[in-house]
Write a protein that binds this DNA or RNA. Sequence first.
RNA 1: GGGACGGUAGCUCAGUAGGUAGAGCACGAGCCUUUUAAGCUUGUGGUCGCGGGUUCGAGCCCCGCCCGUCUCACCA
Length: 502
Amino acid sequence: MDLTAHEIEFRNQRRAHLETLKAAGHRPYGRAFERTGTLAEIRRDFAEGRGVRAAGRVVAVREMGKSTFAHLQDGSDRFQIYVQKNTLGDDAFAAFKAVDLGDFIGVEGELFTTRTGEPSLKVQSWELLAKALHPLPEKWHGLQDTEVRYRQRYLDLIANPDVRRVFDARSRILSFLRRFLESRGYLEVETPALQPIAGGAIATPFRTHYNALGQTMYLRIAPELYLKQLLVGGYDKVFELGKNFRNEGLDRSHNPEFTALEIYEAYGDVHTMRQLVEALVSGAAQDVFGTMVVGKDGQEPIDLTPPWRVAPYRDLVRERAGADWFEMSRDAAREWARAQELEIPDEMTHAQITHEVYEKLIEKTLIQPTFVTRLPAEWVPLAKRCEDDPTLVDVFELVVRGRELCPGYTELNDPIDQRARLEEQAAGDGSKLDEEFLRALEQGMPPAGGMGIGIDRLIMVLTGEESVRDVMLFPQMKNRSPLRAESPGESPNDLPAELPNA
RNA sequence: GGGACGGUAGCUCAGUAGGUAGAGCACGAGCCUUUUAAGCUUGUGGUCGCGGGUUCGAGCCCCGCCCGUCUCACCA
């Protein structure tokens, strides 16, 4: 790797500092350091003159001749330390000058308040815990380069406190979801991520090969079919919180691997699920942010206070496209849609045109939480039909800020209808039929409600972030230098039959 | 995949009309014992994303490519 003269200079200086510190008796990469507490705890329990031990990364240094101010940062806070020549002694003070921005150190001393009123720690002794060989990003503007922020997230986390806050919130939201569900008697389960048939959704899967069985495997696109087998097996209330993988495009609301929460409840239905998701999401906002109104400054605030709007799909379409929409001929519907600047191929059916109108003209206008209900059966093959209209299914799609957040429905438990609808969806390709799942349904699955929440999008709604990359610690990025070029025309799914073991 | 925009010092960014590349921070040296974007003096640091082309001369113009952001397409 080619280094610029400047990078070589940085490296040499820091290594020279490291040698200086070693000569002064420091271990360049220390061992456990017993702290009085985190920096936040030390601040909280501040008492003038109190003796404490603290540790953290040096993120700011202000040298003033025979004394130095610096800031330590740990996972909880940032705290000022004060290093004085006559407190520390000549040698320890001189060695401290070899501490660079970014180094981890441990310090021991007394708490005091500076003339300007900042709680500080007067250092009596200190030791090096880890030397940083690279400089820190700029202290005032932080790290701006989006590419570096995503590829080297640790720099982003060090330099940009707001980023840290988003991921702290993410963690607390996940924790709340688990606590909430467990407190209501739902059992967390784990089902295969490596599946022989990628079912439960319509999406292109990632394909791989399992050497021991000589068999093609897929990364799951959804856990749904396994969770339903647990209902067959007698579990009444289960959920799974985990990763799904879809071999599709990558944009600000899609990442090839993403987190989903799926919940199933025997003897429930679409209404059970609606109430559950309302309580779950509004509860998470209340628990983590102390309010049910969320969003960043400059955004339209989202009010998550239940109950949320319920809007049947056809009503929304009629509202936008006219009360007589569903009595219109296909030609008239096509003409109307094209007048709205939608691209409508001649062969599109009336139902497809309707769906295009919904997705392009209506969904994005649903900012506040809205349950879109009673969708056409062909869009949701695993849902049970409405009793009063077999062309519709008992589902909701929860839409917030114009984006689909969570589908939920009364699960289809009729194995005969289920087979027919999966066959229709597979369009004659029998290899896509999950016979194991159908066999399980034939064993008898209790009536049930189920739903799946896109957790990354939920975090986006709750934190006000507009890109999924800003709520995932390590979003997918293209390799900077591919190990080997893909041969032209080779599909990413075409793998050699045998892969060497790593 | 299409379109728009971007990639200049370790970081954040300027760069006029095509005329030998700048600032702040960081870093080095000097001064400074209550500073906090510390301050003052001074210095180092650049394959201008990569590869071609036009030109006497390219960070700037042209072509190709790489990476990223947004957007459209795709997408339960």
